[in-house]
């Protein structure tokens, strides 16, 4: 099929898509401007059932908080995946660091004595 057929990946999910000569839009700035600025981004957290924490499930765009909740219901809980939803504007979240393995977490790395396995207890002492 010659050069033309090159660089298609099957893993476009619903079928092969080209990976060569396709623009990405990276580095062109987020908002294209124009009369309609993009709606803010919200992060969505869902409590799967009573007794569990809310867990981050994804994100979506909405004009305001109420719309974010309604969209979150439609997008993330179509099959009883949740009993409660939190939506938070992404720009209101403060994150620990730009890197997931930052020295921020180093202080807990060398304190083995915080774990129960650090302590040796004779095997015949019950209920420990």
């Amino acid at each position: 099929m010659g050069d033309e057929g090159r660089d298609y990946t099957a893993e476009g999910g619903h079928g092969a898509v080209p990976l060569k000569d396709v623009p990405t839009g990276l580095g062109q700035g987020g908002d294209l401007g124009g009369p309609q600025p993009e709606w803010p981004l919200y992060e969505v957290f869902v409590r799967g059932k009573r007794g569990l924490n809310h867990v981050h499930v994804g994100s979506l765009h909405a004009a305001d908080d109420r719309m974010a909740l309604l969209h979150a219901r439609d997008v993330y809980t179509r099959r009883n995946e949740g009993v409660s939803i939190w939506v938070v504007r992404a720009d209101a979240i403060t994150a620990s660091s730009p890197d997931e393995k930052d020295p921020m977490f180093a202080p807990s790395g060398d304190k083995v004595y915080r774990h129960p396995t650090f302590y040796e207890i004779p095997a015949d002492v019950p209920h420990m």
Binding site: G13, Q28, G30
Partner: peptide, 26 residues
């Protein structure tokens, strides 16, 4: 996809202008 640094607007624009493709099956 947006977590990689492109905006939803850009993605929509690249679809309807035909710059990006979709699966041939459709």
């Amino acid at each position: 996809c947006e977590t990689l640094g492109v905006s939803r607007q850009q993605l929509t624009e690249m679809l309807i202008s035909g710059k990006q493709k979709y699966s041939s099956i459709f």
